[in-house]
Amino acid sequence: MLRILYFAWLRDRLGRSGETLPLPQGAHCVQDLIAALNARGGEYAAIFARPELIRVAVNQSFATIAAPIAAHDEIAFFPPVTGG
């Protein structure tokens, strides 16, 4: 199972901090996962239709949407960071 995490306003809008789901059929990279989440419609579509607003980490390292994913990966979606 993939472990998906949502932070900051993504979590607020989706109403959840994370979920587990099987690797979508035919999904090889983050972009494929984004497409699967986008296909859910509703808030997911509102958020994942604009991936340029989102940053991604795969297994706790920053990644691009072209990064490969595999079963059991931890994939986090969040806005650009604002610490410091």
């Binding site: 980490a57 969040f78 960071v81 604002t82």
Partner: peptide
């Protein structure tokens, strides 16, 4: 500020709150 995954949400006196961009 640009690479550690922290996020700030602002709380205002009038009750509004907003994520910092």
């Amino acid at each position: 500020k640009t690479s550690a995954p922290f996020w700030k949400r602002e709380e205002f006196a009038d009750g509004r709150s907003a994520w910092v961009e």
